[in-house]
Computed example of a mutant assay.
Amino acid sequence: MLALMVLLVPPAILLIYRFVPPPGTPLMVIRLVQGYGIDKDWTGIERISSNLQRAVLASEDAKFCNHNGFDWVSLKESLEKLEQGERSRGASTITMQTAKNLFLWPGRSFIRKGIEAYLTVWIELLWPKQRTLEVYLNIAEWGKGIYGAEAAARHYFGVPASALTARQSALLAVSLPSPLRSNPAKPTGYLSSRAGVIQGRMNSVPYTRDGVCN
């Protein structure tokens, strides 16, 4: 019975989160204990610039609209690089990152990856793609104590998330892998160059007036 509860509680929470904004994440609590504070403001995806939506997909998960939560091709390539002793960028999709951010702790282990995969399957089953992206953009860490697109847009550029330009969006997107070391408002040469690449890819992301993946 205990094992069954452990397996079924996360899907039940995810079903609630399909309609209700998550109040917080484990990472937020960890950062709060570290003294970073919490700056977040839930914003519906219709009020998040399409520029940022496209930029994040172009940077983090270009196949988001087509995969079932797992990018098997990238995963295979990542494993092959590891076997050859090469550094791998990883194959984590936005769905996987959302699962990790919502329920899990920072770090890498096979146990955590296994739980992440289980949660990813449920997110794909219970949420439409738009909801996954909406939650991701609202709980992603964008600096010390800064979470979500609205807080990041106002902190770095002094504008609401709805008013982000293509360049600002690209800079925010490329800062996601290292949010504590990156400053989108004062980018390093590498960050600026990477943002230029992402900005060039943004137009290839599927988008209609109803949003991405529609």
Rank of each mutant, 00 (worst) to 15 (best):
I115V: 15
I115H: 10
I115K: 15
I115E: 14
E116H: 08
E116V: 10
E116A: 06
Y118M: 14
Y118T: 12
L119W: 01
L119D: 02
L119K: 04
L119A: 10
T120M: 01
T120Y: 01
W122S: 01
I123H: 02
I123Q: 13
E124I: 06
E124F: 11
L125Y: 12
L125W: 14
L125K: 15
L126V: 05
L126Q: 01
L126M: 04
K129F: 07
K129W: 02
K129N: 10
K129R: 14
Q130Y: 07
R131H: 11
R131P: 09
T132D: 14
T132A: 09
E134F: 02
E134C: 09
V135T: 15
L137M: 06
N138D: 05
N138S: 02
I139T: 03
I139S: 09
A140N: 09
A140Q: 11
E141T: 14
E141P: 02
G143C: 02
G143D: 11
G143W: 07
K144N: 13
K144S: 15
K144M: 10
K144E: 12
G145H: 00
I146D: 06
Y147E: 08
Y147T: 07
G148P: 05
A149E: 03
A149G: 07
E150L: 09
E150M: 06
A153P: 01
A153Y: 03
A153N: 02
H155C: 07
H155E: 14
H155Q: 12
Y156T: 02
F157Q: 01
V159W: 09
V159K: 13
P160C: 05
A161Y: 08
S162C: 06
S162G: 07
S162Y: 11
A163Y: 12
A163H: 13
L164A: 04
L164V: 00
L164T: 02
L164C: 02
T165G: 04
T165S: 15
T165Y: 07
A166I: 02
A166S: 13
A166G: 05
R167L: 04
R167Q: 06
R167Y: 03
Q168R: 04
Q168H: 04
S169T: 01
